[in-house]
């Protein structure tokens, strides 16, 4: 039954335009905006020693433009749940697979898997393109350089985490507007708050999703507000356990 449920979720995911159009568009926009700034970075010879020490040829691939695909994938994740609740299709889904946690598991596997694949391809493409642009400036790093491969994998995995967080939020809240608002609140709003509070909110700042992404992809070390890669990965795990746990709890208890 699990295989059938996954096949069904996969078909549902790819047979609507929001996925077929929005996701490629978001990936393209994200890619272009992520690599473009590297063109205007100064060459190695024009940088001071301090600038050079800060310069993160791998991590910079996943700030800025990459956030577009992060937000898009998260919103699409919420949509994969809320569109079914909104239309009532979730009832049809539960008729075919009455064990509702199996439905959640199938959705999570498909949505998370697809986001992971897209994320890894996009993060690698972004990294390789950026390094090619930096080669002439003698700033490029390779996948073998310290932290680089981890940054690429971390960025890709973060997209999967984001899609799953969106899915879980969508299942818990059911309504598209509420779920989108909650997701954006968590991903954007939280950063605005901790940013405004400054140093006082450093401990909380380490837990905001965008700091987690930075922690996963930075090759220039952690700080008070920035978790290290291992801490960031554990924080991702904690988010998934809490959000998907909540979704698993409510999906079975509620009427449809």
């Amino acid at each position: 039954m699990m295989r059938g449920a996954m096949a069904s979720e996969w078909l549902k995911l790819r047979s609507v335009n929001s996925m077929r159009v929005t996701l490629p568009l978001a990936c393209a926009a994200s890619f272009v905006l992520a690599v473009a700034p590297f063109a205007s970075d100064p060459a190695r010879s024009a940088m001071s020693a301090a600038q050079l020490a800060r310069y993160d040829a791998a991590g910079y691939c996943y700030s800025g433009g990459f956030l577009i695909v992060v937000l898009a994938v998260g919103v699409l994740g919420t949509l994969s749940a809320t569109s079914e609740y909104g239309s009532g299709l979730i009832g049809t889904t539960f008729l075919a697979v009455p064990r509702r946690r199996a439905v959640l598991a199938a959705k999570a596997a498909v949505v998370g898997g697809a986001a992971l694949l897209v994320g890894l391809v996009l993060s690698l493409a972004t990294f390789l393109t950026a390094q090619r642009m930096l080669a002439g400036k003698h700033l490029a790093v390779g996948l073998g350089d310290p932290g680089a491969a981890r940054a690429v994998a971390g960025a890709g995995a973060f997209l999967a985490v984001t899609a799953l967080a969106g899915l879980a939020i969508g299942i818990v809240l059911r309504r598209a507007t509420a779920a989108t608002a909650a997701f954006l609140g968590l991903y954007v709003g939280a950063n605005l708050v901790t940013g405004a509070l400054g140093g006082a909110a450093d401990a909380a700042g380490r837990w905001t999703p965008l700091q987690i992404l930075k922690g996963l992809t930075s090759t220039r070390g952690a700080s008070a507000a920035l978790p290290g890669p291992t801490a960031a990965a554990l924080e991702c795990l904690a988010y998934l356990v809490v959000l998907l746990g909540l979704a698993a709890l409510v999906i079975g208890r509620r009427d449809v």
């Binding site: 549902k12 929001s18 569109s83 299709l89 009832g91």
Partner: peptide, 10 residues
Amino acid sequence: LDPGAVHPGR
């Protein structure tokens, strides 16, 4: 139960 329970884009 509900003929409206379909995704309009599919």
